[in-house]
Nucleic acid binder design. Structure first.
Length: 207
DNA sequence: AAGAATGGCAACCGCCGTGAA
DNA sequence: ATTCACGGCGGTTGCCATTCT
């Protein structure tokens, strides 16, 4: 039973980058009325966009509580720790970084953190040391001191990440307990319905 | 200086879960 | 019990900016 696409190919529906005028319209409308039903919002706000596009623009860019700009070391650590625990569940990760959007975190992971971990010889999917770590890091074959240094550094990093991971695990467990005690709604981390699509794919850029 | 390659990020696509009818 | 609409999510793409050759 196929679902029709959420955004019908309606004539005149605009796609692509948002203009400042569109941003202004969306912002003004939501500030005045709240977003309500996203589907009907564009018509009410005078936008020629689909509701989904409006929602995305709002949640990823226009929301006033979004922190933009460079991620701090602490934020990076949190992302790495949570990714080790949760995999690519960006929305869950984002709940622990309240001012960052899942899209931003996902982008940051794919463009920065993933590469950094790989460079350190850590598999960005499993967060465990790679068996052949360092073999492809461009190490000069005859440089033993360099190799020793890299090996030590690698062990050091591995240890660091593992500790961080355990810390995060403990913290999340504590938080879960507190939530259970307070009988508040379970967090996305433990929500049964939360998507567990851990399989990871990263588009290899064609060169 | 110019073109190619790469990086970074905003936005789109399609699937899934949920709740209402 | 089934269908449908909607919101939400993760994966992917496309474009602009920056760096490299």
């Amino acid at each position: 039973m196929g679902r029709s696409p959420c955004c019908e190919k309606e004539a005149g529906l605009k796609k692509g980058p948002w203009t400042p005028e569109e941003d202004q319209k969306l912002l003004a409308f939501i500030e005045q009325h709240g977003h309500g039903c996203w589907r009907s919002l564009p018509a009410k706000a005078g936008l020629r966009r689909c509701g989904k596009s409006c929602r995305l623009r709002w949640t990823n860019y226009l929301r006033p509580d979004i922190k933009r700009g460079k991620f701090t070391i602490q934020e990076e650590q949190t992302i790495i720790q949570l990714h080790a625990l949760l995999g690519n569940r960006w929305s869950s990760i984002a709940t622990h970084l309240p001012k960052r959007t899942d899209n931003e975190i996902k982008n940051y992971w794919n463009t920065h953190l993933k590469k950094r971990l790989a460079k350190m010889g850590i598999d960005p999917v499993t967060h465990k040391p790679r068996a052949n770590a360092g073999a492809s890091s461009g190490a000069g074959a005859g440089n033993n001191a360099g190799a020793r240094y890299r090996a030590a550094a690698h062990l050091n990093h591995t240890e660091q990440w593992e500790n961080a991971r355990l810390e995060a695990e403990a913290r999340l467990a504590r938080e879960a307990n507190l939530r259970a005690l307070a009988s508040t709604p379970v967090s996305p981390v433990n929500t049964p319905g939360a998507k567990v699509r851990v399989c990871f794919y990263y588009r290899a850029r064609s060169s």
